[in-house]
């Protein structure tokens, strides 16, 4: 935990609002550009010999003679193993494979400013300056189902909070506002599921896939590929929620 004075040292180029009394700091936290991460993951996958079938919706997955049949608009794909990591679309695909995925949808709205000179050397979960030198202000938590619209009300409260912390941002302009849906499990932790009825079927849902990308790309992928024990992943099965209910 940091005092206000210590915080001021972290942000020498910008004033803190009078309501700021202190902050929390973890040297392990950092900022990843999610768009570049996504591009890098896709490139890494292709470089490793993978093929991406873009723009192909999977309508359903069947089990057929120990193999999985993925029904696409453009045809059928067979696979010995299948990982369902389709965000909010995962539930429908996973259910027939014996995996139940409890989650709700949550809308998050983000406000993005014009490019400004470097003023925020450290990212926080609510406000950070990107490599492109815009400032991203997030994020709301709203229960509105599938609606990905943006509201002026959210922009107003995000802007007000940003100015409360950093009053010098008052005259910086917002150039874009966007929203997305988060997949939120009952305890916010990810669900990693392995189908016991249909070996070879896996499901993975979480928020956020950006934060957990390093684990997904290494530890989890290795275990799905059959290296290492599933035991330590077991505790992230959705069955943990049944136990609590009982």
């Amino acid at each position: 935990m940091l005092s206000r004075r210590e915080l001021e040292h972290l942000y020498p180029g910008i004033r803190l609002g009078k309501d700021v009394t202190g902050g929390a700091f973890s040297a392990l936290d950092g900022h990843v550009n999610p768009l570049r991460l996504l591009m890098a993951l896709q490139q890494g996958f292709v470089d490793a010999g993978g093929t991406v079938h873009r723009g192909r919706r999977v309508d359903g997955i069947e089990v057929c003679g120990g193999q999985f049949r993925l029904h696409l608009k453009t045809g059928v794909v067979h696979a010995a193993r299948v990982v369902i990591a389709a965000g909010e679309a995962s539930r429908v695909l996973a259910e027939p494979l014996g995996m139940t995925l409890p989650f709700t949808l949550q809308r998050g709205q983000i406000l993005v400013t014009e490019r400004v000179g470097p003023v925020l050397p450290y990212p926080s979960d609510r406000i950070r300056q990107t490599a492109g030198s815009t400032i991203m202000i997030g994020g709301t938590k709203e229960n509105v189902g599938r609606d990905t619209g943006t509201t002026a009300g959210a922009a107003a409260s995000l802007a007000a909070r940003a100015i409360r912390v950093f009053p010098d941002l008052a005259r910086v302009s917002a150039v874009r506002q966007w929203s997305g849906r988060r997949v939120i499990t009952p305890d916010i932790a990810p669900i990693y599921e392995r189908s016991s009825r249909f070996p070879g079927a896996y499901a993975c849902i979480c928020h956020s896939g950006v934060t957990l990308a390093a684990y997904h790309a290494r530890g989890l992928a290795k275990r799905i590929a059959g290296y290492g024990s599933w035991d330590d992943v077991q505790q992230f099965s959705a069955r943990r929620f049944n136990v609590q209910a009982a």
């Binding site: 004033r15 490019r115 000179g117 003023v119 030198s133």
Partner: peptide, 10 residues
């Protein structure tokens, strides 16, 4: 000129 400067002096 370039990105807008933000800070106490502005």
């Amino acid at each position: 000129t370039g990105p807008r400067k933000v800070g106490p002096s502005c």
